[in-house]
């Protein structure tokens, strides 16, 4: 039987990120029969670990096929050294003989897996849309989303990160749970890695942003404004709509370059790549570089006053209209 290790990402409160469920689904392999080991990095916050090992979290992991949970600690300063974190992931992968090692292509996942792949001296496929663990290949974006590439890895352990929301999360069937006699119980393993660091890289601080805002790259719904928003203050209209939608807020490059929004929320070529269930583009013309950052979204809605805007030729649903009329109406109707 094939065995997959998945690095679990958790929120500050210790809850498993929703986007991990897609990764756990991919980890089960073509027939869904792979053994799945979830791994978590214990950064020293015991309340986080308590929440992760609570009945609700264990149930959620079991529902997506996790059989064992490895809680990683290390001799060195695990919480503040990305190199100790990646070395510990590699050590766990070797100790438990994973055939594949998967994670989320989030800001921290991208970084840790690239470090791990370099330390492991194994190839890696980053930000994949799908993976074939048996065939050791993956499909990923090339040329900023204009093409999809199938990459074949010549490896012992297949390492890949998966684009958030790209793989549809599917729960294991009751019969599979029964067959495994797992009945929602997960074995918890404490793994202490001997990794230490020479201190040449150290996390010194995390500056918190506005904590209420959803992370763009992992949000299930995104509403984005373009240059047509005309002013930074007008983002309030978008925020109100986002709140009732449960959406994260994005901006086009034109809106960012005009100073209406920070670069941290830019979607597209030189900004974030997102893949939500719903993407609502407000007053965005639809440049090729913008599409590069959002074309793998499930449903794209365009709202624009220009009937010839390129967005309408490449999205699923269009509303010809002024965002200053349509968005408040949408917010009202959703309420």
């Amino acid at each position: 039987m094939s065995r997959t290790g998945v690095l679990i990402e958790i929120s500050d409160s210790g809850r498993i990120k929703d986007t991990i469920c897609g990764v756990l689904t991919a980890a089960r392999g073509r027939d869904g029969n792979n053994e799945v080991y979830a791994m978590v990095i214990h950064t020293g916050q015991s309340d986080q670990m308590d929440e992760l090992q609570s009945a609700a979290s264990i149930d959620q992991m079991a529902l997506y096929g996790v059989g064992k949970l490895i809680v990683i600690t290390a001799d060195g300063d695990l919480a503040n050294s990305p190199d100790i974190q990646s070395a510990s992931i590699v050590a766990a992968a070797k100790e438990y003989q994973f055939n594949s090692l998967l994670g989320l292509a989030s800001a921290s996942g991208r970084d840790l897996f690239a470090r791990a792949a370099a330390a492991f001296n194994e190839p890696m496929a980053s930000d994949c849309i799908s993976v074939d663990l048996e065939g050791k290949s993956a499909v990923k974006s090339h040329f900023s989303g204009k093409t999809f590439a199938t990459v074949q890895l010549d490896c012992t352990t297949m390492i890949a990160t998966i684009r958030p929301n790209a793989v549809e999360p599917i729960k294991v069937s009751d019969s599979q749970i029964a067959a495994k006699d797992a009945s929602y119980s997960i074995e918890i393993i404490n793994f202490k890695s001997s990794a230490t660091s020479d201190g040449r890289i150290k996390k010194v601080e995390v500056k918190k942003g506005s904590s209420s805002k959803l992370d763009l790259t992992e949000a299930p719904i995104i509403i984005t404004a373009g240059r047509a928003i005309k002013d930074a203050a007008n983002f309030k209209m978008i925020e109100e709509c986002a709140e009732v939608l449960g959406a994260a807020i994005g901006a086009s490059r034109a809106a960012v370059d005009a100073g209406f929004a920070p670069h941290s929320i830019q979607v597209g070529q030189t900004g974030k790549t997102v893949s939500p269930k719903v993407y609502i583009a407000c007053g965005i013309s639809g440049a090729i570089q913008h599409f590069a950052g959002m074309k793998t979204s499930k449903v794209i809605v365009g709202i624009n006053t220009d009937p010839d805007a390129p967005i309408f030729s490449k999205c699923d649903y269009g509303i010809l209209g002024d965002i200053f009329e349509v968005i408040p109406a949408l917010t009202k109707a959703l309420k």
Partner: peptide, 12 residues
């Protein structure tokens, strides 16, 4: 590192 949070690293 997502959600507007920023990580500060010191590196030799």
């Amino acid at each position: 590192i997502g959600g507007g949070d920023r990580e500060v690293l010191e590196i030799s």
